[in-house]
Design a protein around this nucleic acid. Structure first.
Lengths: 349, 349
DNA sequence: TTGTACGCGTTATCAG
DNA sequence: CTGATAACGCGTACAA
């Protein structure tokens, strides 16, 4: 199956190169007979355009990049990244775009900029994780490379973004705990350098305030979005703050670590302590006990981000948009079902 | 920062286009002064080659594809895919290749072949998951597109591959259980259409035979590599085969599901039943109890696959290689530590 | 509606 | 060692 080019197609179809190009690109002004002939030749010889030549002439590559952090912890614990990629990929496939995958870290910032961004090789990029945004947003803006952010980046509001409503998510999680009768509710959240984490913490506070429950800042624990972090933080909290009867964890991974620590310490969930997570990763049904959590539409996030980016590339969308997807509370067993008051231990110090 | 092309560089450096190209590609026959001048201009104007033009002229793209299955279950439960991608990416980065990510399913086979494989747009591909191999291997061979497989594909031994030694892994897992005193040992494995699953099952059988423990085929349960499968299978087995005191699960995800089912059924792990997994995903430390499992070098798999592929592309490697990486037993708590005999329930029916 | 001719930015060839 | 010049395959004004 020797590769055949547009000129050969033209020759075999007894037309000129332009006609072939026009039917290829669905341009008008082609007679039915000519189109027919071209199409036949294309099918017969299984002709496919050379994408490099296409890119060269068209000055675009129909390829976008998705950049995530190289941080091993995050990479490994962010169980949802594959699902997110899938969303991005499928939207791109539908629009005949390809997606190039990249992981970047602080150390390779320059390396990256030279090799990746400079060669006019990507039509646009999706930034996944604020870490990445902080590293590259300025440069992308400067080079006028279309970009969409998955998540939030307060410092770069000129970049369109898709995110879940983190505030609303944690608000409903904590409200759920309050309704179950909890008063001493702890929070395990991610780095407050991340807007996302700030929002989730804010939702926690607001839920307490709205419920008339005093906010105790000593109950807030800041760590990373990993099982390890959730585990280690919880282990140290159990002894120091036994009066806490419920924990809001800002991710399912953290929550899983917390459950593990609770178990080691002989605490029963949900009988002694309630735990609620965030994300609803696929494993959340299978923790012990199954995790009550906040579901966020991960696949949709990826899909929507890709759509926004492609619209941006094609000039279909010019104004920036910050889209907030709605999260849902998924009640399983880690908080118990019963309502009514509960008491255990004393009050906050 | 307007883009500048090779001709401009040549002009500013008072040399011809050819000289510039030669220094760019590290070709010999360039005088030191000329090289110097060119390099200066390149730096001054921050010149970067246009990759499309490069590909067009060089007939290669310096981009490889990594193809995994679109199967949502697998996509979501294969927690190690991100780590694998990272390995592939970092090897490619080191060798200045890019990686394009794709998910493919049976339904879109043709679609895929047309859009992805036909446009001379990838220098080679890494096949991740046998499912993908079965779908595409023939076509790749036919088109003479370099390919490397992560995993095994018995039907396509002409494609180089990297894998963990699945047989050795399950062998040591089961041997561990035997040494702990277990006699009635069950196995939960993946689809036997996959060579990987066959090998893991074979290791299980051999370990039993070598230990003088009779193999009971009724103790083998075949399912998918997901928490759900592990959970559901275990739930149905507990009642029917209470005499089984230990389970070898062919993946950590399955094992996690199994632990969940065991807990629901009131079985204590490891006191009543022991469980061993496979993979050592990052969550394995945080299951309840922490999972004893077989660690496989996931990142290395990706890294090595990429290296093999690039060698293949550049003709550095011509003969096919089937590399088997060594797995390690990681002892945690899900099997207990104590040795000695144990008895519980009756014998197999 | 169709065809011609040129541009896109590089790499490779082959005289000088 | 250097520099024209010819591919590479496609898109697209512009002319017919």
């Amino acid at each position: 199956m020797s590769k055949i080019n547009i000129d050969q197609v033209a020759r075999y179809a007894f037309v000129s190169r332009s006609v072939v190009s026009r039917v290829l690109n669905n341009h008008p002004h082609v007679s039915d007979v000519a189109r027919e002939r071209v199409l036949n030749v294309i099918k017969k010889y299984n002709y496919q355009r050379n994408s490099a030549a296409r890119s060269l002439a068209a000055k675009n590559t129909r390829e976008i990049g998705i950049l995530s952090t190289r941080n091993p912890n995050d990479v490994m614990s962010n169980g949802f990244s594959t699902l997110l990629y899938l969303g991005v990929f499928e939207e791109c496939l539908a629009q005949r775009y390809s997606v190039r995958q990249m992981f970047i870290s602080t150390e390779m910032k320059e390396e990256f900029q030279k090799f990746i961004l400079n060669e006019h090789t990507l039509d646009g990029v999706i930034l996944f994780a604020e870490e990445v945004t902080d590293l590259l947003a300025e440069e992308l803006l400067f080079r006028e490379i279309p970009a969409v952010l998955i998540g939030h980046a307060p410092g770069f509001s000129s970049i369109s973004s898709v995110d879940v409503d983190n505030f609303a998510g944690s608000y409903s999680a904590v409200t759920h705990l309050v309704r179950l009768g909890h008063r001493n509710i702890g929070a395990m959240v991610g780095s407050q350098l991340l807007q996302e984490s700030q929002d989730r913490l804010a939702g926690y506070r607001k839920a307490l305030v709205d419920a008339g429950v005093p906010v105790n800042e000593a109950y807030v624990s800041v760590g990373g979005y990993t099982q390890k972090s959730g585990h280690d933080k919880m282990l140290s909290r159990i002894k120091r703050q036994p009066e806490v009867t419920a924990w809001f964890c800002a991710s399912d991974t953290m929550a899983m670590g917390a459950l593990s620590a609770l178990h080691k310490s002989g605490q029963r969930v949900p009988d002694d302590v309630a735990v609620v997570g965030f994300d609803d990763l696929s494993f959340a049904r299978y923790t012990i006990p199954p995790l009550t959590t906040i579901r966020q539409p991960i696949y949709q996030k990826g899909r929507y981000a890709a759509r926004m980016l492609i619209d941006l590339i094609n000039g279909k969308q010019t104004d920036i948009e910050h889209r907030n997807l709605k999260p849902d509370l998924v009640v399983r067993e880690s908080c118990g079902h019963h309502s009514g008051m509960r008491h255990k231990g004393g009050h906050a110090p």
